[in-house]
Design a protein around this nucleic acid. Structure first.
Lengths: 200, 200, 200, 200
DNA sequence: GATGAATGAGTCTTCATTCAT
DNA sequence: AATGAATGAAGACTCATTCAT
């Protein structure tokens, strides 16, 4: 019955993705049923399957959408030159992640954990997800090199190591918040700061 | 078959838990079926259900067993006084986690991710898991205070913040390794070290 | 398959109920498996569960359907005024029950026993079933009062007692037939008649 | 390990039967599991199976034991000569059934219903149960003939019909009590009495 | 004789996906 | 394009019964 406009189609897709996200956050990836999503989306089963090949497609799409969202939030922070000093940058990153969460009523930190976990056994997801984190780490590496140029951190260190440490701290903030739920973004910055004054 | 000795009973339990662990690591928590575990354990369905009330019990038990394992590995490192300096301690922690993994043929890091993710929607698991991480962080806090006493780190900082930063870095090492798979334990220590020289 | 008309839906429900009834009558309530019913209905498992929440729902529905059937058969007999005299009414009631049975190829008497038995341990069923028998007895009481008005039976008796005796005889006809299988409806009426001439 | 004395053996059997009875009354025949009975009996699985071939054997034995119990209670009432008049006998019978119930803490009426229902699909049980009811009815027939000899009831009636009516009323008392739970034994006698004055 | 751990076929139920309308 | 009823292959779990100790 007639073609649908591309805008309408995109809107429908977003609507379904939104429903999926809500369900996943509430119940987890596998415990969520297609029916849960179908009902939450307000569409019919057939309609949902018209926009997504299958549940796995929906999982990957939902996860990647949220990752793209954070990436957009975080990108500018990492692109700034000169970059904020380490403890400030860390605070900015963790704050951005936290606020992204709050804004849409989803807890991105929980979603992220679902994604990491799922990727362990879902090859297509891992393949899609990896470049995102690689890019994130590459940007952190560029920041590290900028810091070294500016004399902010040890110029003899391997910037790869620095990027790994920073990524670890950021991902760990997410994980720790999700599991313990009491980690204010600032605490991480301050803690690293304290460590940074070591030996003085 | 008459009464079984407590040792035999414990051995059987371990045998099932081992099978479950293997399956979970390979396929994930929910995609693993009870039949998978039953077959892997070499026992019958009834036997497995004689040792574990249901799948959820098995999930929680398997997860907690592995957590207890790491806790035993990590405890001594955190108890040492004076504690190793930050970058060394971080290297020791990440190395311990990595070697624990290698030793038993399971990848603890992947298991940990499954656990964190599952805990988001499994209240009993979260309840059981939390104290473990709280205790871990408490030990890190004690270490931070020892460092402050010894003048190793900024004495004016809040040791809570330091413990959160350290836990984040450690958990993040696990997550990053599981997702990107190329993080040598030493890199984290070195990276933090580089940061630590900031502002000198 | 698009929306189904209410009539079609009702027909499907009846089709399943019919299959269930057949199975229950043949094998009993609990020994009948959902698979038995599913196969007998000619539908798929999912379809059956689309019409009935679970086995218990099916049991209660099947039982109540058959009770409603008898109630419709019996109602007019009890509503007639003046009512047939006791022995005639008893014959009419037992005959109606027997013929209802024969007509549809189910033995209602056996089904009734299954229901009474099940209701002993199935609270929802008992709750649903009771009003039916209460109504039946209330109608019998009204009949008793009509008899008393007409001088057909002892005007000083408690019509409640009469209704209980009549219900007992009717239910007992069902039970005795099911267990011994040789009770013609007329026998009960004649037997009560003989008793009624007592002391003459 | 040594033989057990016949008394002890009989005691054990009774102990198991008692446990089974308790379970059956509480949960129904099929919903009761062997484990329920095993636990209630305080013995081991193996022990129970040493006394009863299987669950069906246990069901039949438990049911027959209770029937034998009522038969002993009721026998003398039916053997008395001259027999009590109809309404009195009915009151005696229903009272005996009710008191038997109360005495042992089991509700015989519910148990009876379970038995009748089960017999519909359990041939061995039906075979065992039938003679009991046939004997009961035969005794009622003898009573009817005594009444006829004594001029208590219509001498031209078929005593078979009378016995069927009496058995129906008695069985119906049991069924009605179990389903509606508010039938005092006396009510039945009084109700039949009222009917008996019809046409005078 | 007694024990109770183990067996494994069988039960109820769910749910991703399809396709006739 | 959209609908939602139907499918049917799993999945988790139970339970009557056995038999090694």
């Amino acid at each position: 019955m007639a073609k649908i406009s591309p805008e309408k189609r995109a809107a429908r897709r977003a609507q379904i993705l939104d429903a999926a996200w809500k369900c996943f956050e509430r119940k987890g990836l596998h415990p969520t049923t297609m029916d849960n999503i179908i009902e939450a989306s307000g569409l019919s089963a057939g309609a949902v399957y018209g926009y997504f090949k299958n549940k796995d497609d929906l999982i990957i799409s939902a996860l990647m959408t949220s990752m793209t969202g954070v990436a957009e939030e975080i990108g500018p922070l990492l692109a700034r030159r000169p970059p904020s000093p380490p403890n400030v940058l860390l605070r900015e990153l963790t704050s951005a992640i936290s606020s992204f969460t709050a804004r849409d009523g989803f807890d991105l930190k929980r979603i992220a954990l679902l994604g990491w976990s799922e990727a362990q056994h879902n090859a297509p997801l891992l393949t899609t997800m990896r470049p995102f984190y690689v890019a994130f780490r590459d940007q952190l590496k560029a920041v590290a090199m900028a810091w070294q140029r500016d004399g902010v951190i040890d110029a003899t260190a391997d910037p790869d190591d620095v990027s790994k440490a920073l990524l670890a701290t950021t991902m760990g903030f997410v994980a720790q918040s999700a599991v313990l739920g009491d980690v204010e973004p600032d605490a991480i910055g301050r803690g690293v700061s304290a460590l940074a004054k070591a030996g003085k």
